[in-house]
Design a protein around this nucleic acid. Structure first.
Lengths: 205, 205
DNA sequence: CATTTTCCGTACCGTAAGTACAGTTTTTAT
DNA sequence: ATAAAAACTGTACTTACGGTACGGAAAATG
């Protein structure tokens, strides 16, 4: 990593920490550059305005999430060949990963953008939309494979069930932040897992 | 309603619309007073600062939500005496109510506060926490009544299931906003309903 | 009719985003 | 070693916003 890239990453780290706890427009550039030990001109050399900072942060965040999902669900598939059981294992791993975050999940950049959408340009909003639709596609593929082998016990739209994974995460993060209890998020993921079990797993009499 | 209260309400209406679409700190006082046709001094007569505006908005929002839940689930109980079926009817009604919102759900003030928590004082954050805990209590009571008659088919913490109602709503709102499709929220509520059915309703062979 | 409530007008302060632009240091390629 | 490109610094400025201070006026109310 070149020196320029290094500084850029550092600025983004500092910005993200502030943004997820205080909100985007409450995190000042002055504050970011003070912590980074750089001047304002230096900041604007890397990002032409705050919107570009937001875009960069969102892109990086989305890529990291994709990586996390890839890691967890491919690991789960290694542990069990059946798509349903692998998915269940993956959800357990995900729940544990979330529970192990020292101060709870810091917040989702996607939700941050949603709750101040008008302040970002079309490019940022579109990036956000595409990330969520990519999650939908990812989980829909898993669910379709599951549904082939295990007929669902309720007439549901699998696309909506795929969205439920993301929705559970987003909702869980908000709830965790609201009540100040990091456990709520992992608990909600486990409840989604419980739903998947009841929806697909045949009753064992 | 006196003239003062009237103006106060109008200011809050304008502020809320801006806040839910742009975020709290992106909605300027100048912008609010311009739309309300009032001066800055007039604004600060009603709210000593923006924090007090946030507190007032949150209080009003929470009260309205409580009213909505009261209406829907008491109406549902009128339609069916059994707690499980009444809950299912209530969820259907809630889903329809959300689907009927012309431009989709405008956003949840509770989530807005969560995603800029450090910018609000303890009073506002505490108000937020209490509202979420009140939702938990409300739905937990319903679920306990259900669980008495219908033994759950999975070993779950009913408190977490109660939280799942709020989590589904919060997550659904974020997802709806992200993909730009108001239907996602009502869809997610119906999936929560599907979970409740599978969790409590005995299999009909 | 007196008083309180509900505002208006104006002037001001500090902070933040962003611009402009010239100059300087540090890397990197040749 | 040196030229060129990359990564900044420094200063000065503009605009917008949150918030304060304070005197006064219109309007509702008892």
């Amino acid at each position: 990593m070149s020196k320029g890239e290094n500084t850029r990453e550092r600025l983004m780290d500092i910005a993200q920490a502030g943004i997820l706890s205080k909100g985007f427009w409450a995190t000042s550039i002055d504050e970011i550059i003070a912590e980074a030990g750089i001047t304002k001109s230096g900041f604007f050399y890397h990002f032409k305005d705050k919107n570009e900072l937001a875009r960069a942060l969102l892109e990086r965040y989305i890529a990291l999430e994709e990586q996390l999902f890839d890691d967890i669900f491919s690991r789960a598939r290694e542990l069990h060949d059946d798509p349903l059981h692998a998915f269940m294992i993956g959800l357990k791993l995900l729940s544990e990963t979330m529970a192990d975050l020292p101060n709870g999940h810091p917040g989702c950049m996607v939700a941050t953008v949603c709750y101040s959408e008008r302040m970002f340009d079309n490019e940022v909003r579109d990036l956000n939309r595409k990330a969520v639709l990519a999650w939908r596609t990812r989980f829909l593929a898993m669910l379709e494979e599951i549904a082939e082998r295990y007929p669902p016990r309720d007439d549901v739209d699998l696309k909506a069930v795929a969205d439920m994974m993301s929705s559970t995460a987003e909702g869980g993060i908000v709830m965790s932040k609201a009540v100040g209890d990091p456990k709520v998020l992992s608990q909600q993921i486990l409840l989604f897992r419980s739903y998947i079990r009841l929806l697909f797993l045949p009753e064992s009499h």
